[in-house]
Nucleic acid binder design. Sequence first.
RNA 1: GCGAGCGUGGCGGAACGGCAUACGCGCCGGGUUUAGGACCCGGUCCUUUCGGGGAUGAGGGUUCGACUCCCUCCGCUCGCACCA
Length: 935
Amino acid sequence: MTNDIPQHRYDARLANEIEARWQDRWDAERTFWAPNPTGLLSEGAERASGRDPVFVLDMFPYPSGAGLHVGHPLGYIGTDVYARYQRMNGKNVLHAMGYDAFGLPAEQYAVQTGQHPRITTEANIATMRRQLRALGLGHDSRRGPATTDPAYYRWTQWIFLQIFNSWYDFEADRARPIVELVPILAADPEVGWEDLDAHARRELVDSFRLAYLSEAPVNWCPALGTVLSNEEVTADGRSERGNFPVYRRPLKQWMMRITAYADRLLADLDLLDWTESIKLMQRNWIGRSTGASVDFAVVGHDDVISVFTTRPDTLFGATYMVLAPEHPLVDVLVPGEWPGATLGEELSDIPAAWKGIFGAEVGPAAAVRRYREFAAGKSDLERQSEGKDKTGVFTGAFAINPVNDERIPVFIADYVLMGYGTGAIMAVPAHDQRDFEFAREFALPITCVIQPTDVWMLEHRCDLDPGEWPEAYGGDGVGMNSANADVSLDGRHVADAKVAITDWLTTNQLGESTINYKLRDWLFSRQRYWGEPFPIVYDEFDMPRAVPESMLPVELPEIIDFEPEIVEDSAASVPAPPLSRAEAWTTVDLDLGDGEGTKTYRRELNTMPQWAGSCWYYLRYLDPTNEDQFVSPDAEQYWMGDGPGGIDLYVGGVEHAVLHLLYARFWHKMLFDLGHVSTPEPFQRLFNQGMIQAPAFTDERGIYVEATTVVERDGAFFAGDEPVRREFGKIGKSLKNMVTPDDIFRDYGADSLRLYEMSMGPLDASRPWSTRDIVGVFRFLQRLWRNVIDEDTGALCITEAPADDETRRILHHTIAGMREDMPTMGFNTAVSKLITLNNHVTQVSARDGGASRDVIEPMVLMLAPLAPHIAEELWSRLGHAETITYEDFPVADPGWLTVDEVEYPVQVNGKVRGKVTVATDADQAVVEAAARADV
RNA sequence: GCGAGCGUGGCGGAACGGCAUACGCGCCGGGUUUAGGACCCGGUCCUUUCGGGGAUGAGGGUUCGACUCCCUCCGCUCGCACCA
């Protein structure tokens, strides 16, 4: 059988054999253990001295039961290539992988099977570890905690207690321990500390904590049986997970005071090497805007309506006010009857439309109630289709515009949101498009107070009468109709007028300059089983008390039924945490060490959201086995303590642009304020890898058919004989287009998969998966193998003679190019450069009967970060005993980068008209000749 | 609606303002082979009277020279979306 595949060809079988062998050897030799300077993980520290620390981090995965598909490891391979490259440049590289293992899917699976989530979670982690190991990822296996490990969440709870026991000192602009607050409160005469009893004092102190209980309206999702953070609710009021209705209702829940950090979270983005688009998403989410608060007195009431506006300069043009339907003042303001004839002349007849959309024959209380029901009951679909159509109802109340004492009606309308600003606005229809539309709908007066530009009036074919305008004028201009006895904005430009009116408001105690944020405090509790228990108990006054650090972790109790209480789908339903079923656990006898001795306390039954564990996992990687501290200062400073952000490279999906990345920055800053970490930011350089999409196929009914059954014939696609339509989408079970790494390992080996994923395009771009294309990089590895190893005998087939000059030139250009591409994650072009070099070497080898060791060895070294197994194997067969991992990456010799001869394209009027080849040292002569030439 | 990004062969994609289409897939031809290809060699943007000419979404501009910089438009993707 001489025609069989040669015995020593690099095929899938050989690749698999090589890969398994080297993975075992890396484990046995602890190749990727990164030594800490001191402590439990300091083995090998002397070897690492003189090596700079580099911390490379992936966004750690949720251990799903489905295992990996080929889209998952894209970023992991990228970081591994980068990490291996850094090792070959003399760095001490920390690269590890943990698991974000709390969360809904494990819990739901447990519900279905009756198996404890811990069992399924551990099984899933084992599967993922196997798959990641098979990719040849060089992780330090000691440093991969799961957030569900009690030894891990003990410290999550510890960090929670740090937050609970802190307050924000706005003067110092940082968090401080709560014990430092008491003397400050006691010294403040306005507080009246001496007059407060112990209970009142504790209530006051609790109100300052960075983690606090609040009964504010929260996002309640009955279908999921839990409350959700703002970040987990979509714009149309549904749950991000499952797309179920979400209701705003007041519930007593844990909050984190992230708003205290809004400015720093915003400002410190400037310190980071992140893409502008991600920074922008965070800026938009924080939503800082400057303006003024203005207080409007209400006719016949002591209450004032406080509003936030970015346009205080238009205050004279405020002709009505609007409260959000849920605004607490509404109930107070609504009179028993419509004001009717008691109104001023121009308002003596209330237009029927003001009394609500359900007919005029009801009083204001009923009209308001009906409108509130209408607004609350709007489905997302209705909201979408209504678009910007303005609805609302008159409350029957009037406010006084403080600048001109005009009486203006107060409406409620759902275009004003309770969640932003004060939940109330002054409406300036002439200069705000939404107010303009509402005023038109309800026949409200429109007063122009900023003179539009001539161009604008020309374009809109109108003059200064806003009654004729097609839309509001929102641009710059000078003030008009804006003067009272005290202050005049007439003739002043917008910016100038803002300052003038804000000063006037401040002087008269009617308002002040204000900064407002879209960012809300972070709702931090969930009604779930599979999450971190809070280290909190409640005393006989129902007040929260911290569980002492010495009693951590507060472990999850065993229960049989994990199912969240799925309650009736309505806003009125109440959440019921699953932990309430652990009856023996819900109360506990404790001595909190506060001198009160052992008492019975009631436990907090909510659990933390999944984000909690991911807020600080990178810190635990640094010192995962430390039982005394969440991380030792030595380890923290060694790996993180350089630059404003500690982590040298953080790679993950763009879907975490706000949620995880904002929460983690927030926690890191608190830990920084409290002296537990040494950098103000965690992630110095952020890189978002793209998403791999795969073809999916639908039949005529639009149903997905298993992608593996589809064949291509003449450019069309068929499942059996039935024609199907191709689209590209997220890889997974739902589109029936799953491609697993295991399939690719079997057919090509891990090195080919790595190389393919790195070569298919820029790492930050999304691109379609194409299994067919893998053969390209596979052939490259085969050719490269063949340039070193005789396929028939398995012997080395290189020569010891020096390489020719042209080969050297190409080699050194390749080295220089690789050294540009690797640090910038330009792996696709790095691979193409290696292929180009190898193609040349293949030709030379055929011509000369073997390629020179001079070029083969650097080529294998350059391949090592990308395809480490085959590189190790060839390196070893080339006669090296040690792993290639810590060999030096080749350095280009500048002497070979300059060329002796250069081909000049000769252009005439920008068109290439010919080429000439001249000696490089004639360069100057060419330039001079060109200068002399009369073109 | 607002904001950001992107448009290059049949496909994935290369290209400091200086030879457009590197590298790979696919396809075509040839070799080796009983055969097969995950082997080897060569070819593969359009057009051509074989001298050339034309192509980077469309149109304009800057420049000796534009895929690259500027303007307008078209298309796609992503984010936010009544944020006062």
